[in-house]
Design a protein around this nucleic acid. Sequence first.
DNA 1: GAATTTTTGAGGTACGTTCCTCATTTTCAA
DNA 2: TTGAAAATGAGGAACGTACCTCAAAAATTC
Lengths: 354, 354
Amino acid sequence: MSRPTVNDIAREAGVSLATVDRVLNARPGVRAKTILAVNDAIARLGYVRDLAAANLARSRSYRMVVLLPDSDSQFVHTLAAALQEAAALAAASRTEMDLRRYPPEDMHVLAAHLAGLQPDAVAGVALMAPETPVVRDAVRALRLRGVPVVALGSDLPNAGRDHFVGIDSHAAGRTAGVLMGRFCRGLTGRVLVIADSMLLRDSIERRRGFDEVMLADFPALEVLPTVETHGAPDMLRAVVGERIAATPDLAGIYLLASGHRALAGLLRDRGLLGRFTVIGHELTPHSRAALLAGHLDAVIAQNPGHLARSALRVLRAKADRAPIDEGQEQLRIEVVIRENLPADPAETRRADAA
Amino acid sequence: MSRPTVNDIAREAGVSLATVDRVLNARPGVRAKTILAVNDAIARLGYVRDLAAANLARSRSYRMVVLLPDSDSQFVHTLAAALQEAAALAAASRTEMDLRRYPPEDMHVLAAHLAGLQPDAVAGVALMAPETPVVRDAVRALRLRGVPVVALGSDLPNAGRDHFVGIDSHAAGRTAGVLMGRFCRGLTGRVLVIADSMLLRDSIERRRGFDEVMLADFPALEVLPTVETHGAPDMLRAVVGERIAATPDLAGIYLLASGHRALAGLLRDRGLLGRFTVIGHELTPHSRAALLAGHLDAVIAQNPGHLARSALRVLRAKADRAPIDEGQEQLRIEVVIRENLPADPAETRRADAA
DNA sequence: GAATTTTTGAGGTACGTTCCTCATTTTCAA
DNA sequence: TTGAAAATGAGGAACGTACCTCAAAAATTC
């Protein structure tokens, strides 16, 4: 009738509750034959462990440490907010989050942070960091001490992280390339690429994907060398301004990372708004505003809420040694234009309050 | 130190456990003043109800009925599979799903189905159906009997559903319009629109959004009247074939609903593959194949897995009278092109098995 | 076949909440 | 001031699982 319980399994398998428990929780002291009998009964009855009861009985709680760079990037801010929100929800299932920031320029501080984590006090770690040797070693050491590690937003493939939550930067760059090429259909000209720094793996991969597509499919467009702004708006205005002036046949601008506001300001001042196809990454208040105003044609994004929830869910699964629902944790490479811009979460909250 | 429990609240508020329980579960028989005192204590302690324990104690299980049209549409198939998968996961939290099909041509059968549901045996209903008067009345009656109803994929705004899980068809149509217009940059010509039936609300709204954008922003493109195929591939080949022949300056084709395979076949036979910009809706095995082959330029989609999980989560929240996390339940209008095509879930499973 | 080890059984407590009963106290209106 | 009604307290059982102990049974070794 109703769902079978451990007691039903015991009866069905003709063993005691204690034995069923030993099998279910992989405790020692059970003959292989008995294990099989129990598993048989489980399969016959279609037993599914009641997670609610199990977690309650364990009375275990999970402290997840999340490490983000302490940069003033809007994406990081948005992600931090999404993480807080996800953590508030996760609190109902005994998961708490400890969100920490580290100075983005010094990976030794991050490594020291990781080295200082006590395995018995931390159920898992999610971090967003570039894969430098220092970080790689720190992550490896942490995993050796038994702490699951999830790479957040930016992958750490060679650090042996347990999971990566985020999108494939190379495919994201390709997507940007296709949109740029198609939005510029019929045009012959050049495309300017702007990055914070080409030392970051994400930017490199985006650029690589972008170039691949442009070269193969849109030969009428020539992609210029990357202009680096180091996150400084002034630098962007100066360098990009000079480049625009020097490129009469400019068809498009590809913004690899941040700088939406500075670029919009520059174009506005020069009366160039809407003259080029502009494509960028990540949905932030600035890029959202630019999309709405029509200064920006498309954004390639990942959903920060999804990113945050996935990170916590995956860490929880890893901590429980439970399987992961790949379908649910697969982040999508979103293409956002003005028409499919999702409602602003801040707006929604304001409307709710009213 | 550790998380506060109901007992801590009782102590903090200076009342008994029974009173705390009455307040927490909105049971009658507590003075307003006392309620305030308890809520104060809750806020002071930062109490968060332990869902695991609460659900266990309730030992309530939730039977959700999901009703889908028994059409051979690939989207419905995909959604059904996603629902089964979501239900398997939800089983761990005492939620089971009863997926039923109804003949798509007869809303009276659906209405009878709804009328036959026992409120005490069903915790909630999700249904995908056009908003005919019969359906509207059946939904209203069901809600009056206390069963939460969620509209799935296609909204039922005038039936008073508790929630809509899906995307805004009008905005989806606008998105399709912008892509069509931009992908056809520089061209002057006509756009063919193909629908199963223009009696379906979704198709009407998509078309309306599409037209708005085309008219306002892309005057060089003229949108032709909708061709209806009634879901029949033969009909599509015949009618669309004739229309294509009659339209020498055809620039694009907008597929409002199904028919990806038939259209690809038709274009292939005539040697017209890749000649027009083709934009469609929903990611299915057929549209996926067409994207990969390059016969289809973009698809406007909603994530069926997300749709399924949202539906079950929202029903559960409604059944518990719990608040809904809007951010999480907000479906995105996805733009899918070849470069950001998510991994095929079937492929992933096969790879896992290997 | 005795001694030892391994496996199994029986029974209990705990987790944090829900929901019940019954007794007692407080409040309010007549 | 009294009587009825409303509010509160005290206590306990239950949900399904985890985890503990101790005793009994079975299997293994010499």
